[in-house]
Design a binder for these strands. Structure first.
Length: 825
RNA sequence: GCCUCUGUGGCGGAACUGGUAGACGCGCUGGACUCAAAAUCCAGUAUCCGUAAGGAUGUGAGAGUUCGAUUCUCUCCGGAGGCACCA
């Protein structure tokens, strides 16, 4: 009989199934209270125009999850959308004269088509596009709610400013201190900005990290670090000869007797007052001027030299009443603590260096190393025992802190204080392509919120993009000119837009409802679907997006919109895709285009490679050969079924085995199902799950179907069906095709995930290693569970062992059931 | 400087609670099929010595705990990432 060799041609299979899935609305998710739910979410992309390999990896990880859980009987929500506002669209408008709206929507269409070609199972009815008015309207509603509650406020902050383009620059647009477009030197300019009070939630954001046991430890650490809680005290020093007080923050109130100076930020409100009329007045003025000319990063980077000047003024030490000089220095910043610190050179590295540089006296050693007090080296920054400190001598650092704080409180000159490194979130962007901030500036009434019935404040279409002269919105007269909602007088609209991170902070809740037009999120749908069970994205969002979503979730919780403290139960941070040792990027020219790969090898191969090449959370090195290997494996599975299709069609699948051959196959099947299931369940070890299926296929290839007994044939067919189902989440197109070819109805996605029997998955025979002094000498096969005494007897009777022992009596024998016997001589 | 992660063949990577290190894939070698090649199928493949049987070495380095360590503890070295004049 001649055999037709069946070739695996994904280019024919994949479009066929994508069409069928689409026609049958296979991926639509409806809530069903009778089924357990899973919300699987991949971070939505910025519509840059084309998906890259990182996206493919991201979506493949999520799609296998979504499909696997569905086969396991879960009701799975798996939506997708677009983080559609942002700088690149506006830059494209400036450079290519395309309107951001057009550019964005064309890109979305492109990328959506690319995603469909990958066969990702999204319920597109839930699609969210953040630049659509029906989405950003709700962002404005939330902004106004925050404004009302004092959680959104306006304040001055210095920004990167290009004097030649007369526009604000994002940090990414400043290259070596120069404007990316015109190379002018970038200046710092103070401007009114909008802020969200993230600091109000700092403690909660920190505390609730404990709930996130299924987030990578690394991310939790990064957030802890970023929030940066430190406990200490605020202490008042009175200024010599003035009414004012200088309040400092310190984490070491116990070292207060060691203070040799106060150091203020150059911007501190009292600086000019202190220096006025002193010989230092000019030096102080010059120093302040110099600091202003520096950009923020240069000013605060650790590389820059510690610099300062004496203000000419003095403060009075609150306990010793000594006169303490007041300095200003570049390393003290206004927006942490009180913008002023007490310098204790004996117990702080930086204060020590500063004192040495400016020859300030190192007043007093006030703490000693409790272990070796005689050898305390300065600066001694660890905890120890207080000395030379009237009130707290002999106390340990922590006792001393408590006592000093109590004393300060008693005297009314200080208090315990917790500070966070986390700053309030600046959300103003002087850009067009973003969500308009819905407020109006009236000369009479100040900042007036746009009434809710006038929302959304729409972005006007007809604007000019020059890249110069600030935000295009500011030049759009009919947008800017408006009436004050309060006094009806002439007023100006806010022309800043919100940072895109605002929109991406609550999209996951919006997905829960379809066609919901009455509020930002649907409370009942959120109740049904939230929290996200598995959230998948890159590490780069660790202290940005992933902190902002947590913040927004807490806001929405406090508004009664959602329940639960946290948006996502499990976070999976996938690694990056590398090629030739570098991250894939256009500039490096090492990009592999997903579309090209899909048309050459098929989506199934692309997906499989992304998951097989390594664990999902680790970086992945691209390998053309590795891709071929995955393609070869899929071909092997395809041919395994197709080349014996005629025989297979007349065989009924069974899971009963009495003959040795059938038993062997059955055991192999159950063992494989168990291993694959276990590896997917255990933090999605896809790479090893796939390798178990490869082993399974290798073994099935060795079966001679025609020569096999009837029973084995039935078990063999069962093996193939289960293999197809297990592989289906990874390579859904090919598996649906094979499922159909095997004469089965429906989609693999609607089948139950294969089950296994623990006893059938167990091996009945174990190979036990025989060792002499820890070296392997032989292996014997015994039935599983053979008792220790019997194992020892078998080992001592083994010919090789007997030969080596030569009649010597063993000193000691260690027996590990089902594993080994170790004999010592 | 502080914090976190990481180090296994020629390469990507396996190894559950300490118990046969290197599964699976790539690459390489050989064989089958073919006039031939590709594709496919089968087999071998850590290193060193040895024709072989066999032996020795081996999970970044060193020590420790243990009958036994890739796995646990300590010290050091290399790589990646985060924070960073934060008082």
């Amino acid at each position: 009989m001649t055999r037709v060799q069946h070739d695996y041609v994904p280019q024919e299979i994949e479009p066929k199934w994508q069409k069928r899935w689409d026609e049958t609305k296979l991926f639509n998710a409806e809530f069903d209270s009778k089924k357990p739910k899973k919300y699987v979410l991949e971070m939505f992309p910025y519509p840059s125009g084309r998906i890259h390999m990182g996206h493919v990896r991201n979506y493949a990880i999520g799609d296998v999850m979504a499909r696997y859980f569905r086969m396991q009987g879960y009701n799975v929500l798996h939506p997708m959308g677009w983080d559609a506002f942002g700088l690149p669209a506006e830059n494209a408008a400036i450079q290519n004269k395309v309107h951001p709206l057009k550019w964005t929507y064309e890109n979305i269409a492109n990328m959506k088509a690319q995603m469909s070609r990958l066969g990702v199972s999204y319920d597109w009815r839930r699609e969210v596009t953040t630049c659509a008015p029906e989405y950003y309207k709700w962002g404005q509603v939330m902004f106004l709610k925050m404004l009302d509650q004092g959680l959104a406020y306006r304040d001055k902050r210095s920004l990167n400013w290009c004097p030649s383009c007369s526009t604000v620059l994002a940090n990414e647009e400043v290259v070596d201190g120069q404007c990316w477009r015109c190379d002018s030197n970038v200046e710092q300019k103070e401007m009114d900005q909008w802020f969200f009070k993230t600091t109000q939630y700092a403690q909660q954001l920190l505390d609730d990290l404990k709930q996130l046991q299924q987030w990578p430890e690394r991310i939790r650490h990064m957030q802890t670090n970023w929030i940066g809680r430190s406990e200490g005290a605020e202490i008042d020093f009175t200024v010599d000869g003035h009414q004012e007080k200088i309040r400092v923050f310190t984490t070491r109130p116990d070292t207060i007797y060691g203070v040799n100076a106060l150091i203020l930020a150059p911007e501190h409100a009292l600086v000019l007052k202190l220096s006025r009329g002193t010989s230092q007045e000019r030096a102080v003025g010059e120093f302040i001027k110099k600091m202003k000319s520096l950009d923020k990063s240069a000013r605060t980077s650790e590389d820059s030299e510690k610099e300062g000047v004496f203000t000419g003024g003095f403060a009075i030490h609150p306990l010793t009443k000594a006169k303490v000089p007041v300095w200003i220095a570049n390393f003290v910043v206004t927006d942490y603590g009180t913008g002023a610190l007490m310098a204790v050179p004996a117990h702080d590295n930086r204060d020590h260096a500063f004192a040495v540089k400016y020859k300030l006296p190192i007043v007093q050693v006030v703490a000693l190393d409790s272990k070796s007090p005689g050898e305390t080296e300065l600066p001694f920054v660890d905890e120890g025992v207080s000395i030379n400190s009237e009130l707290i001598n002999g106390l340990s650092t922590s006792e001393a802190k408590t006592k000093i704080i109590a004393e300060l409180v008693r005297l009314g000159i200080g208090e315990a204080r917790v500070n966070f490194r986390l700053r309030d979130w600046g959300i103003s962007r002087q850009r067009y392509w973003g969500c308009p901030i819905p407020v109006i500036h009236c000369e009479k009434d100040g900042v007036v919120p746009v009434p809710e019935n006038q929302l959304p404040v729409l972005l006007p279409d007809a604007v000019q993009f020059s890249g110069k002269g600030g935000s295009p919105l500011a030049h759009h007269e009919s947008f800017v000119k408006t009436k004050c909602p309060k006094c009806q007088g002439p007023a100006r609209r806010e022309t800043d837009t919100m940072a895109t991170f605002v929109e991406s902070s609550w999209y996951y809740a919006r997905y829960c409802a379809i066609n919901h037009h009455t509020s930002a999120v649907s409370k009942s749908d959120c109740q049904n679907w939230l929290p996200i069970d598995h959230y998948i994205g890159g590490v780069e969002h660790a202290t940005g997006h992933l902190l902002y979503v947590r913040f927004f979730h807490k806001l929405m919780r406090d508004w009664g919109w959602v329940s639960g403290d946290e948006p996502a139960t499990q976070l999976i941070c996938q690694g990056m895709v590398y090629k030739d040792g570098a991250k894939m990027s256009k500039s490096k020219g090492n990009v592999v285009d997903p579309d090209e790969l899909v048309s050459k090898m098929g989506a199934d191969t692309a997906r499989l490679f992304m998951l097989f090449a390594g664990p999902i959370e680790k970086d992945l090195e691209w390998s053309d050969k590795g891709v071929e290997g995955c393609h070869r494996f899929l071909g092997r599975v395809y041919r395994l079924v197709m080349n014996s299709l005629e025989e297979l069609r007349s065989i009924k699948p069974i899971d009963v085995a009495t003959t040795p051959e059938a038993k062997k196959l059955q055991h192999l099947l159950h063992k494989t199902v168990k291993s694959v299931t276990f590896d997917i369940e255990k933090d999605f070890h896809y790479n090893t799950a796939i390798s178990f299926m490869m082993e399974f296929v290798n073994a099935l290839y060795l079966v001679d179907l025609k020569a096999a007994d009837k029973e084995s044939q039935g078990v063999f067919r069962n093996c193939l069906e289960k293999l197809v189902l297990m592989l289906a989440p990874f390579a859904p197109h090919m598996c649906d095709e094979l499922w159909e070819q095997l004469g089965q109805k429906g989609f693999t996605l609607d089948q139950n995930w294969p089950k296994f029997s623990e006893s059938l998955a167990q091996v009945s025979e174990k190979e036990v290693v025989l060792q002499i002094n820890g070296k392997i000498k032989d292996k014997i096969t015994v039935s599983a569970g053979t008792v220790d005494a019997e194992l020892q007897r078998l080992a001592l009777a083994n010919t090789k062992i007997v030969e080596i022992l030569k009649g010597q009596a063993p000193k000691k024998i260690i027996v590990v059931k089902d594993k080994l016997v170790n004999i010592f001589i």
